[in-house]
Amino acid sequence: MKKPVILITGGPGFDRQFHTEARVLNKTYTSAIVAAGGIPVMDLDENALDDYVAMSDGCIFTGTHAFLPDENLSMGNLQVERINRDHKLMHKFIDAKKPVLGICQGFQQLNTAFSGDLCINFKLTDGVEHCQTTHTIKTTQGSLVNRLFGDEFLVNSIHNVRVGKLADCFVPTAYSPDGVLEAYEHKELPVYGFQWHPERMRGDFSGCPYGPNTDALFKAFVEMCISYK
């Protein structure tokens, strides 16, 4: 069977050699896709987004991992440029009806790309801590996460921003015990978002939160990308 090509967009940072603007991607995302049988690739031209959509069978929008090889370097507008580019790509992939995963920042930005909104630094308003911790989530019957991992399980948690208003095209599929939205899926298309990091809950990752092995999730995603073809 032909392997699907999965675009993984990554985040901004700087090159070590010349300290020029660079793209950075945590390898946990790429290992998860390789293990599930996909071919991971990254784009490197913000003016050729249509070409990347055409050559890819699916896309993952990732969390943030800014790489600064020198403390004197500043991210400046790089995050804003990244979000603008990712928003355009999200619309293009969804228009093409190709499978999409949004993880952490990708989960949040996918929501804002379709007119949802976010609560920044929600611990101050909600009185709950979701950074560098582990908690359970409860899933909705019939959703992808529910089918794969059951009604309730442990996940990692590394975020200070949460989804506020959920975009109309999505339905919520999991919440934390303190009411934070932890997963959603698209009403009609193979588009799934996770506030937690399933790419860091696979069997070979040290620091798994004693939840399920999420290989099954990436396998399911890669299979969706194949069946789209």
Partner: peptide, 27 residues
């Protein structure tokens, strides 16, 4: 301690200016 890929955007810009589509290998 987190393994990651890093690629300077300058290579992508030079390739696309010359009419190619830059693709970063991740495996």
């Amino acid at each position: 301690n987190i393994p990651h890929f890093v690629i300077s955007c300058e290579y992508g810009k030079a390739v696309s200016k010359a009419g190619g589509l830059p693709i970063v290998a991740l495996d």
